[in-house]
């Protein structure tokens, strides 16, 4: 890819992905989180499309279509419905000290790039930048799951982590076999539904989606 226009666009989208990952870290509103997640999906689909176009791998078009359908439309819609049903639309949570979290995030980005450097040297197709960003997105989503206290943001963190992996698979290494991608997509979808069902159960049990209540479940 290198300096071609498509390569640059992929780089730009990668940066956008990272920006969205940081925005998610610093976002307090649940609804805005869902919107950010949809944006991330859109950027992912666009980058997949670009890679498909520039490398001529046709199966990546399907991946892109899958990403749009699943990550921009279906899952956000499901999450929206969940939020409506559970009536947590105005939930504002106070994650621990956002600037500190973001500082940790920056450290993670540097770490991710340090990791990506030797890997990208082994292969000719992998660019250090995109692989590093994909790795960083995974780590940042993990961080987000750790610092959140409510269940829905945690699930969004989980889904965003999958986005990072997806980006690594398409943009950095030009795609996995379609079957694998279909399988992963299905898994994520099923996961989302299972989470949805769990939410209702958690709510019935504790009257809240605050996962601190789960601490009571341990045996003393």
């Amino acid at each position: 890819m290198g300096t071609s226009l498509a390569g640059q666009m992929v780089n730009l989208l990668a940066a956008f992905l990272l920006l969205v990952a940081f925005a998610m870290l610093s976002q307090r509103r649940v609804l805005s989180l869902v919107r950010l997640f949809a944006w991330q999906g859109a950027a992912l689909a666009a980058s997949t499309l670009l890679v498909a176009y520039s490398t001529g791998q046709n199966h990546l078009y399907y991946s892109a279509a899958l990403a749009v359908a699943l990550k921009v439309i279906l899952i956000p819609w499901v999450l929206h419905r969940l939020i409506d049903r559970l009536d947590v639309r105005w939930d504002i949570e106070t994650p621990i000290n956002i600037p500190t979290t973001m500082l940790v995030g920056i450290a993670l980005v540097i770490f991710a790039f340090a990791l990506a450097t030797p890997i990208s040297e082994m292969s000719s197709t992998i660019t250090r930048g995109t692989l590093g960003i994909a790795l960083a997105c995974v780590l940042l989503s993990f961080l987000m799951m750790i610092v959140r206290r409510k269940a829905i943001p945690q699930v969004i963190g989980f889904l965003a982590m999958e986005n990072g992996l997806f980006f690594a698979a398409t943009s950095a290494t030009h795609g996995m076999p379609l079957v694998v991608e279909l399988g992963v997509a299905l898994d994520v979808l099923v996961g989302t539904f299972i989470f949805g069902i769990f939410f209702f159960h958690i709510r019935e049990q504790f009257d809240s989606l605050d996962i601190r209540h789960m601490e009571k479940l341990k045996e003393d």
């Binding site: 920056i106 540097i110 790039f113 340090a114 450097t117 250090r128």
Partner: peptide, 10 residues
């Protein structure tokens, strides 16, 4: 060195 290069601005 890529890592040192990027931490210097910090």
């Amino acid at each position: 060195h890529s890592v040192v290069r990027s931490i210097l601005p910090l």
